[in-house]
Amino acid sequence: MDLGEFWNKLANPDRIPRVFSLILGLFLLIGLFVPFSLNNEQLYPRPAPQEQMFAGDSIAPYDRGGEILETPGITVAQYPQYSKKIGMINSYMSPIAYNIKKNSPYFGTSIYSSPGGLIDEILYYTRGFDTILESTILMMAFVIASWLALNFTMRNKNKKDD
């Protein structure tokens, strides 16, 4: 098969996802032979696994320390000069979350995964622009999906009824 024939076959849109996934799969196989090592000086550090659990912390494993508006907790920024108040509110808890924390040592994950339980400064402060973009991507997906649903699916149904 000469090259021109190959290019012609590639011009069929049905084949493109297959070609793409094949190339991607082959390249990911190469990844098995690449030496991977985690750089320990990460920008967004986490405490050692289970460390807070063993210490008996009631909001383990996500305790970032600090006192609201008084002493900063552990949140590291790449450019601290542009986020001056960093760490000041990451120990904020809603009254309900605070009461659960006081009464039981077992709900750390639940508190932080519930709405209002967590003020993640990486999400909302140091990397807040990324969070805006992520929700924009979601919103555009909803715009497209709802436009299609309104104009194709529902209208076509009405046409059949007529």
Binding site: R127, F129, D130, L133, T136, I137, M140, A141, I144, W147
Partner: peptide, 18 residues
């Protein structure tokens, strides 16, 4: 910022389909 760029590319991709 690298992750910021990746998000912009993903946004362009989905809007292109739209």
């Amino acid at each position: 910022d690298l992750f910021n760029f990746i998000l912009f590319v993903a946004l362009t991709g989905i809007v292109n389909i739209g």
